[in-house]
């Protein structure tokens, strides 16, 4: 039972990070119907920017951890958002209105480009970060087995919940959110209502990238190691999460992320760690076969 609880905590932590990345996939798909395969790389860049920001703040002498964390969070979100914006502007917008496969191919190219760009600039070595947030709590103890939740895990879960709340509020209540929902349903009609469709799409990429940056920062803190290749696996897993939840649906992306994180954690805990990716991607295949619209996705209705 305690072991189960421990895996639950680990799975939730992992799932929150997947969910944050998955939202970026889902929002972009919702609006322009394309899978942004460079999104995993955006997450990786977010992780690198976090490390650089930590080092810089260290040099500048900002040592009070809460302040440093807050600054790193803001810096990572801002710079990664700029990357997201640039990628959309350079690689996708010129191809809008082109055939459906074109932006997808462009996205794969962008993904390879970003990986190599970071590899060249930062080197191929694994970058290690000393633990910044330390300590934790023991929730229960029995027969020498303790259920622990570390402060990093608490931070990840709380920060994700807060961001999700802010984010849902933006989508539901602000003009930008309304414009995004309008664009999601009918791009041309939205333009006729005076919505600047190109800008709305850009801002969608910016929002998705900012959330991926937060996930990147969390991964840096949680695992303590980062390299130029982490975006690939995380990206594909987040994509799986988005499909599982129903691509295009934002609550679905979060739910899919959580479920995927839990599956991975329980699989690793009760079966074998080596096969956890097999379990994760089997879900992708099964969902695509039996539930193509995902858990919360809307069935595609033919427009006449």
């Amino acid at each position: 039972m305690l072991y189960f609880l421990q895996q639950l905590i680990n799975g939730l932590t992992l799932g929150m990070m997947y969910g944050l990345i998955a939202i970026g996939y889902s929002m972009v798909y919702g609006i322009i119907g394309m899978i942004n395969f460079a999104h995993g790389e955006i997450y990786m860049i977010g992780a690198f920017i976090s490390i650089i920001a930590f080092l810089l703040l260290g040099v500048l002498g900002v040592t009070w951890i809460p302040l440093a964390l807050l600054l790193v969070l803001l810096i990572a979100m801002a710079f990664t958002a700029a990357y997201g914006w640039t990628v959309e502007r350079l690689a996708y917008r010129p191809l809008r209105g082109s055939f459906r496969l074109a932006p997808l191919i462009s996205a794969i190219g962008m993904s390879i480009f970003l990986q190599n760009y970071v590899q060249l600039l930062q080197g191929a070595n694994v970058k290690a970060v000393p633990p910044i947030i330390t300590g934790g709590w023991i929730l229960a103890e029995q027969d020498g087995f303790a259920v622990r939740i570390s402060n990093v895990q608490i931070m990840i879960i709380l920060l994700t919940l807060v961001l999700m709340a802010i984010f849902s509020w933006i989508i539901a209540n602000t003009p930008l959110g309304r414009a995004q929902r309008a664009c999601e349903q009918d791009l041309k009609m939205a333009a006729l209502c005076g919505v600047n469709v190109d800008r709305t799409i850009s801002l969608t990429f910016v929002m998705g990238a900012a959330l991926a940056a937060v996930a990147g920062l969390m991964a840096t803190l949680y695992y303590g190691v980062v390299d130029f290749f982490i975006g690939f696996l995380a990206g594909i897993k987040a994509f799986t999460a988005a499909v599982l939840g129903g691509i295009g649906s934002i609550p679905g992306a979060m739910l899919g992320g959580l479920l995927l994180g839990l599956v991975e954690a329980f699989w690793s805990g009760y079966f074998t760690t080596e096969y956890k990716d097999v379990a994760a991607f089997s879900i992708l295949v099964i969902v695509l076969i039996f539930l193509p619209t995902g858990l919360l996705g809307k069935p595609e209705i033919e427009k006449v």
Partner: peptide
């Protein structure tokens, strides 16, 4: 071509987007 998944009121508010 209404925004079918938005409420009637929201449809009219989107039109005042600018």
């Amino acid at each position: 071509r209404l925004f079918a998944h938005m409420t009637a009121l929201e449809n009219l508010v989107v039109a005042q987007h600018n």
